[in-house]
Design a binder for these strands. Structure first.
Lengths: 221, 221
DNA sequence: GGTGCTAGATAGTGGCAGTATCCAACAGGG
DNA sequence: CCCTGTTGGATACTGCCACTATCTAGCACC
């Protein structure tokens, strides 16, 4: 199909398609002439995936490219899974500098806490994993804003995260035959489960709040 | 303290403090003269909270203002909790228009699915809740990108989300005396647990991938 | 009484995600 | 064979966001 039809099929403006191609998110069509190219179903699907990752997944164009590149480059299924996981952005920026002694102490405390948690969960993750560093940064940020924050609470969340990850992997690696299909599914599961889960959590929170109101009736403030 | 000291204490440039004040995120200091104001500890804490919400929580300035406003406006503890929850942005944009019959069918299917889930979980959430609408949109987006997506899988995630929400509420409503303190804690729990949980999920995923590699040894691609 | 900091207003910056415009090169129909 | 319409590719422009910088006066404090 021509680009105009691709645009209609995927619901994406032609100019945006060109933009995605420029940015390396979408492979070029098969050129049939100097100024004409043929696109296929895989382009439609890719565009749908791009839209889902950017809107629902909240990924930037650069992050989306990284994820899609990771899918294409790794050669084993597990390699792809790992690459996707690492390519997904974490919402934590590295803190600027650890100049003061206080900062260094915070850093060390957070590192210990993360290491303890990983040991307690018996997680097999390398210290160099971006997720480990991300979690360390996140804990430092939490501590800065909430002095009362109790580290022990993390363990309960970690146990639930473990259950979630098990579900994720079951969904992602369902059919282990076609590495490409697994990878695309894994992208969807890894990148798009988060917002869905977050929404479910909000719904459950809302329910919890209502239940507490009902329980306490007309009580306090 | 003067604004320059506030800046040093919170690690935020003076220009940014002025910006936050302009945008309604930070209350003005107590004016001691036409060109001088006095700031207190509450301003330091507020700035820390703003930084945490924007960097770790990923909230925009506008969303941060909405959340902080919600905390200040509602008068009951439960009202505050609800207001905060609703003020937090969901990562799902409303789909543009439901013009075609296909879109209408998708919408109806997603709505049914969400309603069934809520019924199955016995969640007490109004149909008009933004979270319900957000979840509906998210499911539509998922369906568009993944035809194989199986609705049943949602239930398992919902159950886990429920456990998470219970933890959240326990943390948020620990001390029920000071409505203001509860509200600030709730903001932290509601807005900042998500990235931490996501990081934990990524770590657990990484662990799962490694375990599967080890299990299968040298097996397949 | 001068130096330095301040409030408040306004303007500028850099990055991101598109969107628009141009041009030359064809394709396909009449 | 020619003419209209579309395309690829390049470049420029736009709108939004989150700051950041500059400017003008007016005090505060030593």
């Amino acid at each position: 199909m021509k680009i105009s039809e691709l645009s209609r099929r995927a619901g994406v403006p032609v100019a945006s398609i060109k933009y995605f191609r420029r940015e390396g998110l979408l492979p070029a069509g098969r050129a049939t002439a100097a100024t004409l190219a043929e696109y296929g179903e895989e382009h439609v699907q890719r565009l749908r995936l791009i839209k889902a990752l950017t809107t629902l997944g909240g990924l930037s164009i650069a992050a989306t490219r990284d994820v899609l590149t990771a899918v294409g480059e790794a050669h084993t299924t597990d390699g792809k899974l790992g690459a996707i996981s690492y390519a997904l952005p974490v919402p934590v920026a590295d803190s600027p500098v650890a100049d003061s002694a206080q900062d260094a102490a915070d850093q060390a405390a957070a590192e210990t806490e993360v290491a303890d948690l990983i040991a307690a969960m018996d997680w097999q993750t390398p210290d160099a994993s971006p997720h480990v560093r991300g979690l360390t940064e996140a804990l430092k940020a939490l501590r800065r804003v909430d002095a009362d924050y109790r580290p022990g609470e993390l363990a309960a969340y970690a146990a639930l995260a473990n259950s979630i990850a098990r579900l994720d992997l079951e969904r992602a690696a369902t059919f282990g035959d076609d590495a490409e299909a697994v990878a695309e599914r894994a992208v969807i599961v890894f990148a798009l489960s988060a917002p869905v889960l977050e929404l479910l959590r909000r719904l459950a929170q809302e329910d919890q709040v209502r239940r507490r109101v009902a329980e306490r009736g007309d009580a306090l403030s």
